[in-house]
Design a binder for these strands. Sequence first.
DNA 1: TACTATTTAGAACGTTTGTTCCAAAATATT
DNA 2: AATATTTTGGAACAAACGTTCTAAATAGTA
Lengths: 191, 191
Amino acid sequence: MARKKEFDPEERMEKARDLFWQKGYNATSMEDLVQTMGLNRGSIYDTYGDKHSLYLQCLGNYAAEKLREHKEAAMGTSPIEKVENMILSVVEATVNTGKCCMAVNSTFELATVDQSVHSIINNNWKDIVNFFEQLLTDAREVGEISADKDPRLLAEFIAANFTGLWQTYILSRDKKQVEKLAQFLIGMIKN
Amino acid sequence: MARKKEFDPEERMEKARDLFWQKGYNATSMEDLVQTMGLNRGSIYDTYGDKHSLYLQCLGNYAAEKLREHKEAAMGTSPIEKVENMILSVVEATVNTGKCCMAVNSTFELATVDQSVHSIINNNWKDIVNFFEQLLTDAREVGEISADKDPRLLAEFIAANFTGLWQTYILSRDKKQVEKLAQFLIGMIKN
DNA sequence: TACTATTTAGAACGTTTGTTCCAAAATATT
DNA sequence: AATATTTTGGAACAAACGTTCTAAATAGTA
């Protein structure tokens, strides 16, 4: 029998993912990936396929992890508290790491021209909106938000606002600014 | 004396701008630009400088035109009506052309790594927010929005929501979906 | 009409791109 | 210890990249 892989494919993929996350798809070269992943060209092609295929795997990995993190952040004793904590957790992660959402970056760089990318992001987006919708439906049943509000629409509104928060952060690089906007959003949901 | 330019530099730049708008900076090659602008390589370099310089001019041109369009869309007999019409006009332009905001695309593709790009977009962003702020201040004085609302914060919130609307449109490609979100935003502003 | 400054078209430049290939190194089993 | 199988590092590839350069075409002036 032959050798086994000397590296952990998942671990090295995360290095690639972080690089794509930071630089974007087109600005990241194969040479960059070889350096950052600490792998040989051949090993990369053998393990992940070509650059585009590797990117899709990174994006899928990111999307799955992000959804998990959203659900983890949904702590609290009441549905609306869970929604609030999810929003605050996104803001916290953004200002702590200085990085915005890879899926959103990818939306604006690639989703209009790359069907595979669009599909991955859109599914992830729907998952997140669905999760919000469930929480908001619960919140309405408990009477935390008024009965005349549409949970689906509100869920989409919150998700769309994340993107607005990220853009604001990229331009302002101002932690407090983003926190203020998030609090404003939370206030709007509750009333 | 010598020849004069046979083409209109501004008109050709707009062709380049539309291409960058559609494909993004990195995915647009100099060869693409030569074809689309209908100009010789030498003429491009001579008139606009290198690719990056041409891009900055396109982005600046776009930003100025966008601000002008925003102000033009601010029609109405009352301040809040002007704000509402600005929002509706953005949605209309988006679903009619199928294109989102070039500056927002650029924000997520380049603004984190390119200082010149960041500067152009940030200034344009501030101009738009300032314009909203003025209208909302007027609206508050007239009593169209409640006195406890901060015009500046509300202005930033609306501007951030544009980005959310664009992202929603890219993913859903659903005119009605975006219009619903816009109406929801307008409702939130008024209450 | 001759002259001259400038634009024009496209060849050519050296890099960098993504990808493939191959010989050498390595390891789990026999 | 020998064998078999796979990984590994790096050379090699053609194509595409952004940019520069040159020679011919052009048009305003004298």
